[in-house]
Amino acid sequence: MIRFLLRRVLGATVILLVISAVTFLLFYSIPRDPARLACGKTCDPESLAMIRASLGVDRPVPVQYWEYLVGIFAGRDFAAGPCPAPCLGYSFRDQSPVLETILDRVPTTASLALGGAVVFLTVGLALGMIAARNQGNLVDKGLSSLSLVMSSMQIYLVGPLVLAVFVYHLQLLPSPRYVDLTEDPVGWFKGLLVPWLVMSIIFTAAYTRMARSTLVEQLREDHVRTARAKGMSGRTVFFRHAWRGSLIPIVTILGVDLGSLFGGAMVTEFTFALPGLGRLAVNSVTQTDLPMLMGVMLFAAAMIIAFNILVDAVYAWIDPRIRLS
């Protein structure tokens, strides 16, 4: 287990290094100068040079990158003062510390991701099971069509529609906003309900189809036939013998989905004006804010990697034939 974790963390470090280098290179290959942006319309060469120096973009790109990396592991000193490790620098835009800004946004994104996952996982798997138990008949076909329709939806279409009809017109659902869970749990729940539901419409379909197909496959397995020959009831056969074997593909896509949701659900956050990481990422791109962009990118990548490691660990727990090595 420890060796497994060590190896995976080492691998993750390499991936993060590559991602950070690529982001850095891409940033400097776009023809936009963060200093000129900060300088404004009436900008003389002197103040531009000054801003350049203060942002640190006057030095060669490799040097900047190196300092950035050193900052993460050992901290670094800025003109404004020391930045202890792990230092992700300060925003070009408003000089706010990147790490704190990100950590500030995490609760929103995490609430969105986890709450949404509870809804789409519960509904998706339940529908998938119902479809699998009714394999081939009308219920199954209806659910298949429904999931096809749902997976063809887009959040930026469904979101505003739900807002217009259910929130503003009929006033059946509370309007979306983010309230901290620790401050007001009820407000937190009410504020995120609509985003969760809308997000789930899109995600549920994938889980319904996945659960259905893997269950149908499992039900054809020899060991399920054995379970029936042993005189197990239909329910035991289904839940004890078929269900567990069908979990692996579901856990796989759940890991990918959760990883990317934790890195920020851009469209959802924009649609419902929630202050999460997705918005932060988009804003940092449009504002040519390199330190913020780097920070969000690395955080999102780290989340995806972390969930992948978690998924691999869960595999071994589900299926004893899989060993962590």
Binding site: D222, T226, R228, K230, M232, D319
Partner: peptide, 22 residues
């Protein structure tokens, strides 16, 4: 179902696939 396994039992060909792997 009450006869299955209790009164009449079956042994299958390929024990690896016929036993539940998990």
């Amino acid at each position: 179902r009450k006869i299955r396994g209790r009164k009449i039992a079956m042994i299958f060909q390929d024990a690896l696939s016929s036993l539940n792997p998990v």
